[in-house]
């Protein structure tokens, strides 16, 4: 068996979770492969070191902070009874967009270039309006030419001589 496959079985081997056959295979490999055998003994040392890490006591300062959380929360709720929805995560994108909009609006109203912005906006509006007018005129001329085409087509249809039909 390859070392890579054995590596995957080292933890279950360490914790005696393999079946007899797998256990035998791993034990046999460890006897012959120096690398895997070293890795296995280091894994044991690692596990021992980790299990030796003791639990720390919580400091008085942290305990005070933790005990005061419910009081803080209650105070916040009393002061802002109806605005809890504002801190919901789902509202964050909307609040962000609203903030950006407000910043842009404030730039417009209080910025030094208000008149030039106004001019450029009115220029843009005028340009857009004239474009629409041109488009409208084009559409009108197109409908007029369609009428002409219609007349021409009708005349042509009347003049078509169908084979086998009467001359009159």
């Amino acid at each position: 068996m390859k070392c890579k496959t054995i590596e995957e079985l080292l933890s279950p081997y360490l914790e005696d979770e393999l079946n007899t056959e797998e256990k035998g295979t791993v034990a046999k490999h460890l006897k012959t492969c120096e690398n895997c055998s070293l890795l296995f003994s280091l894994m044991k040392e690692t596990q021992e070191s980790l299990s030796d890490i003791p639990e720390l006591e919580v400091s008085e300062n942290l305990l005070d902070r933790l005990y005061s959380i419910p009081r803080k929360k209650k105070r916040f709720k009393l002061r802002f009874p109806n605005f809890d929805f504002l801190v919901r995560p789902s509202l964050q994108p909307i609040l962000t967009v609203a903030t950006i909009m407000l910043i842009m609006i404030s730039f417009y109203f209080y910025g030094p270039n208000k008149s030039s912005i106004d001019k450029s906006i009115s220029r843009k509006i005028g340009y857009g309006y004239s474009k629409i007018e041109r488009l409208y005129a084009k559409a009108e001329s197109f409908t007029a030419s369609l009428g002409e085409y219609k007349d021409n087509i009708l005349v042509s249809l009347k003049n078509i001589k169908l084979p086998g039909g009467n001359e009159d």
Binding site: E7, E8, L10, S11, P12, L14, L38, L39, L42, M43, E45, T46, Q47, L50
Partner: peptide, 14 residues
């Protein structure tokens, strides 16, 4: 994941 973690730590120890 636990096996991978132990292997990584064993290699660091090595």
């Amino acid at each position: 994941r636990i096996n991978r973690g132990r292997l990584q730590l064993a290699k660091i120890l090595k």
